[in-house]
Computed example of a mutant assay.
Amino acid sequence: MREFESALATAMDAGVAPGTADADALVERHRAVFSAYFPLSREMQVVLGRLFVADPGYAAHYDGIRAGLAEWFRRSIEAEARRHGIDPESAVWR
């Protein structure tokens, strides 16, 4: 997970924009990492992305790695979800 989080920070620092192929690859990598513990649908990932920003503990964790990382990652998750036909505004845990 540390290796993955470092890759997120590196991508954000490099100016990788949410919705690009590089950001999408990181979002897919995140799903793969979490799917080792439980199946993580794209909708569930969107809900997690919201938590990464809204929950103070998650936000502190991601923003502790790099200021603004929680929001960047949430936007990246949502952009990738849209590409797969998921509306982030209506996504639920399923």
Rank of each mutant, 00 (worst) to 15 (best):
E5P: 01
Y37Q: 13
M44P: 01
Y62P: 00
Y37S: 11
V33S: 04
G85M: 09
I77R: 05
E71Q: 15
F34G: 10
G68P: 05
G68W: 10
P18L: 10
A17H: 13
A36K: 14
E43Y: 07
R66H: 00
F38C: 10
L51F: 13
L8Y: 10
R94L: 14
S6M: 14
Q45W: 09
P56D: 04
R66Q: 02
E71K: 15
P18I: 07
Q45D: 08
V53R: 05
A21Y: 09
R83K: 14
A60Q: 05
M12F: 00
G19I: 07
S76Q: 06
E89L: 13
R29V: 00
S76Y: 10
A81P: 04
G15F: 01
H30V: 10
S76I: 01
G64H: 12
Y58F: 15
L8A: 10
A36Y: 03
Y58S: 11
A70S: 07
A36D: 10
M1R: 15
S6K: 15
A60S: 13
E71V: 13
D22F: 04
G68K: 09
P18G: 04
D87C: 07
H30G: 03
D22L: 14
T10H: 13
A91H: 01
G68L: 04
A11I: 00
Y58A: 04
R42I: 08
G49Q: 06
M1L: 15
F73I: 01
M1C: 11
G19V: 09
P88T: 01
R75Y: 05
G68I: 01
V27G: 06
V27R: 11
R2K: 14
E78H: 06
A17P: 02
R29L: 07
G64R: 10
P18M: 04
R66S: 00
H84R: 15
F4V: 07
D87M: 06
S6P: 02
G15I: 00
R75E: 15
Q45H: 15
L40F: 13
D13E: 08
I86Q: 06
V33G: 06
V92Y: 14
I65Q: 08
H61S: 04
G57Y: 14
I86M: 04
V33W: 04
F38K: 15
E71H: 12
L8S: 07
I65T: 05
Y62T: 03
E3K: 15
A91K: 02
H30M: 12
A9W: 02
L48D: 03
G49H: 08
A79G: 01
